[in-house]
């Protein structure tokens, strides 16, 4: 294709958009809304996954011992746990360590009244796993080990997070699919109106000897530009809104922000920008391409 033809086609595509201002605007708005929701769900989902992953890394089994257990037996049990394949890390927390941690985290300088260690029997092993799903099997094993009084687990937290993650994922996909279908339909309508408006011009082009490509290309370009604009606007909005929302959460819910580790906008945009642009351009191309093939038998 000649460079002059390329620019002519591009210019015609841009002019088409302004010829059907209202329909173009409707298409941009729908794609924009679709990709805004996509971005929103993605941001929530990505953060959720990040939080779940962090939580999974922190999920550990705590193994407590019988009151009269000897130090050598504790060490023996520790070695047994370390040998298990599903175990990634084992930390021994002595009664003194446990008390120190408790004092720091919860008493904040008000521990002077305690003359003895109230957690004297709370020495334990923190057992970290390679895979959270192996937790039940390990717990069953540990509970049968002589000298172990109690095994505490946090499987419920991990499972709840995982399930919530999945649910949000399914809802997001459902809504996005519906919006994508509406976007394709609207782009198709916009292009159909464009073809109707330019019917006379297209018929002259055909008589003069325009190729299929030459007649169709401006409409496809129109669709792609609509898709591109429709994708860019929500990205800008998300950039603005995300940082504000993060600041708001940090200010208003400081407890949450200290517990949960949120992703930065840069982390979100690494995936969101290319995916949104590809989806926007893809919808534009697909919607206009199927329409010109259907309505423009040149």
């Amino acid at each position: 294709m000649k460079i002059s033809t390329f620019f002519y086609t591009l210019w015609q595509g841009i002019k088409n958009i302004f010829r059907n201002k209202l329909f173009s605007l409707a298409s941009v708005a729908t794609i924009g809304a679709c990709l805004f929701l996509f971005g929103l769900f993605y941001s929530v989902l990505a953060n959720f996954q990040h939080i779940v992953k962090t939580a999974e890394e922190d999920v550990c089994i705590v193994v407590y011992f019988d009151e009269d257990i000897t130090d050598s037996r504790i060490e023996e049990i520790g070695n047994m746990i370390k040998r298990r394949a599903e175990v990634s890390k084992v930390n021994f927390v002595s009664a003194d360590d446990a008390w120190e941690t408790f004092k720091t985290e919860y008493l904040d300088g008000y521990s002077d009244g305690f003359l003895e260690n109230p957690l004297a029997d709370m020495a334990n092993y923190e057992v970290y796993l390679n895979d959270v799903s192996m937790q039940s099997a390990l717990v069953t094993y540990l509970e049968s080990v002589p000298g172990v009084s109690e095994v505490k687990r946090s499987e419920l937290t991990a499972l709840t997070l995982s399930n919530a993650n999945k649910l949000i994922g399914y809802i997001s996909i459902g809504i996005i699919v519906i919006l994508l279908a509406v976007s394709v339909f609207l782009i198709s309508n916009t292009v159909t109106i464009g073809i109707a408006v330019r019917k006379e011009e297209i018929s002259i082009m055909k008589y003069i000897g325009a190729t299929d490509y030459f007649v169709r290309a401006p409409f496809v370009i129109e669709g792609i530009i609509i898709g591109l604009v429709g994708a860019s606007i929500p990205l800008g909005i998300i950039y603005f809104v995300y940082n504000r929302a993060l600041n708001f959460i940090k200010e208003q819910f400081s407890v949450l922000s200290s517990l949960l580790n949120f992703l930065t906008i840069d982390d979100i945009f690494k995936t969101l920008v290319p995916v949104s642009l590809i989806i926007g351009v893809g919808i534009g191309f697909f919607g206009s391409f199927i329409t010109v093939r259907k309505h423009l038998r040149v």
Partner: peptide, 28 residues
């Protein structure tokens, strides 16, 4: 082929020059 119609079929939004140039652009 060159084609001329009874109703002229000119592009009303373009001037004389552009109407004629249009035929040349189409054939690149």
């Amino acid at each position: 082929l060159g084609v001329v119609f009874q109703d002229f079929r000119l592009l009303k939004d373009r001037n004389v020059y552009e109407n004629v140039a249009f035929a040349q652009r189409i054939v690149e």
